[in-house]
Amino acid sequence: MAKAARAAQAWRVYKQVSQPGSPGLITRLRTVPRMVGAVTRGRYPGMSKSRLAMLGLGVVYILSPIDVIPDFLALVGVADDFGVLLWLTASLLGESGRYLDWERRNIQASVFPPEHGR
């Protein structure tokens, strides 16, 4: 993904997080472990396991001392890590917001099941 596309994605997610009534940053971050569990158990259809694996690879890339572009190449080496971090953060925040919406709809549907025959 190009740098401009990553920046645009991050900006869209920032605007979503800052909208009134939208789940905030902390709520979305706290949702991530629950979302990961739901995806791995096959309970959340909004995200594929392959997408989850890509996000996991992003975490591994950031934490790994081995880089595609070595960090000793001044700004270029750090820029690839920052790009992956930006993509990962925007993806996790966006996905966790969609998961929260899905979770709320399912909780409401289980508490207030649709009436049949009316």
Rank of each mutant, 00 (worst) to 15 (best):
D80T: 08
G77M: 00
Y99W: 08
R43K: 13
G58W: 01
I62E: 06
G42F: 05
Y61K: 02
R30E: 12
V84A: 07
T89G: 07
R43G: 10
A109F: 01
V68A: 12
G56I: 05
A38G: 05
V76A: 12
G58L: 01
M54Q: 11
G58Q: 01
V68P: 07
R51P: 02
G97A: 14
T31G: 08
P33L: 02
G56T: 11
D101H: 14
I69Y: 11
L88P: 02
G77N: 00
P45F: 00
L55H: 00
L92N: 00
Q108I: 15
G83M: 08
T89Q: 07
R43A: 12
D67V: 07
A38I: 06
R104D: 08
M35V: 02
G77I: 00
Q108M: 13
G83D: 15
R105N: 09
S96R: 01
I66V: 13
P70F: 00
F112A: 10
R34M: 13
F112E: 15
W87A: 15
V39E: 02
L29W: 09
G94R: 07
S110C: 00
R43T: 09
M47G: 02
V84I: 10
G58E: 02
L93Q: 03
V60N: 06
R43D: 12
Y44G: 12
V68I: 09
P70N: 01
G97F: 08
S64L: 01
P45Y: 02
V59C: 08
D101M: 06
I66D: 13
G37F: 04
A74Y: 11
D67T: 10
Q108F: 13
L63F: 05
R98F: 02
L73T: 14
